[in-house]
Amino acid sequence: MTDSLRVVDVAEDQLDSVWQVRTRSFGPGGDRDEWRKTALEFLDDGRYLGVVDGDELVAAARIWPFEQWWHGRRVQLGGVAGVVVAPEYRGRGVASLLMRAVLQRCVDKGYPLTALYPATTVLYRHLGYEFAGHRYKFSFQAADLRTLGGKGTAIRKAGPGDAELFLQLASKAHEGQRSSGPLIWPLKQVQGWLEDEDNFAYVADDGFVVYNWSDGALAVDELIAGSEETARALWATVGSGASIARTVHAYCAPSDPIHLMVEHEADTDTRINRWMLRMIDAPAAIAARGFPEVTVEVDLQLVDQELAGNTGGWHLSVAGGAGQLTPAEPSVDALRLGSRGLAALYAGTPLASLRAAGLAAGGTPEGDDALDTAFGGPTPYVLDYF
């Protein structure tokens, strides 16, 4: 790495350079005009960072302003996307320089958490990220879905004016289900999806579905239902295309009720993408997250090589469905975690797994049981790629 490399906020006149680096990094593809339109939204409030060598832009990354559900409560999250480095600058510390700036910008923006889909785990683990959950793509027989019923449920075609309603319905469902992982997108983005003529959207009193055509099959991006009848009606609406499309791909949780409704199980070639999580502000992340109705009192000793504010002795208290992390002198039996172990624990990875991987030490068996209960539950999942 040379002294001429420095981090900058990407400017509008640098977007052509970002696109060129993106093409060299990911290959050709996508609509350049649409990409630029979206990219512009990240510039004004400092959510697009780059690395320049002199005047040449050689790397870039952007940050989505998401919220994410954690046990039925919303937590602000910086979604890191479009991390690109020019091929001739790889292996020179440029990506680390860029990502450290991204972490600091997430601090500045007040995001307790950050998440990403890794092209490589080496870089991100070195910076404190760890696997937290999955994105599942299941494939069902359209004819199975068509026969699910729900004919007594009224549904209508949805449009951009329903974006706020969609967000409200999704929030009600995820809060009630104590969901962990699904993202809350900005309203403008949801409106854009509902404006897209390639998407088909329908809404009922307590649910909605968004789907589209995908290589001769149908693909469900999201289906939210507050009742069995609504779920049946919306899935049957998608399945009504069975005379044209034999298969329906669906992004949904592995515990989604659809798995219990259809006559035939999902195809065995289920696709899974893994995503990674990192704590930016440990006390804020704990305070924002939901917890089951358990009581936990555990001492922690945290070490964060990148964000010093997380490092030190802490006391974790969980009660009444809420958690609190307060500074404390570490006790002899404090559980010792680095940033990777802390992220994995937050996402529900059992302490036995963390210990076996060398990501946790110290503590007590009783403390492990209490933490597994507090943070455990179904594997967190995400419906969207970003």
Rank of each mutant, 00 (worst) to 15 (best):
K188N: 10
V203N: 11
Y381I: 11
A119F: 02
Y385T: 11
C106Q: 13
L302K: 09
D55K: 06
A288F: 08
A119V: 10
L351P: 07
I224E: 08
G128V: 08
L194M: 12
Y48K: 01
L234N: 00
R355D: 00
E41G: 13
A360T: 15
G110V: 11
D256Y: 09
H249Q: 14
G192V: 10
G348C: 10
G341A: 03
E293P: 08
A60I: 05
M279L: 10
Q189R: 15
R32N: 00
G91R: 11
N199Q: 05
G216W: 09
P378E: 14
P182G: 12
Y211K: 10
M1H: 15
V210L: 07
V18A: 10
E263I: 04
T379W: 01
P350S: 06
D281R: 06
R156I: 04
A201N: 15
L354C: 04
R289Q: 01
V85Q: 00
S331T: 15
G290P: 12
A59G: 06
D372C: 15
P330S: 12
T373K: 01
A352E: 15
G50R: 12
D215H: 11
T153K: 00
H315C: 07
P380K: 09
E229V: 00
I272H: 10
R22F: 15
Y124W: 01
G152F: 02
P118M: 10
L337N: 02
S4R: 11
A219Q: 02
D368H: 09
L345W: 09
L383S: 04
P28D: 00
R105V: 07
A158P: 12
R100V: 13
D9G: 11
T364L: 01
R246N: 04
L277E: 13
H259T: 02
K172E: 15
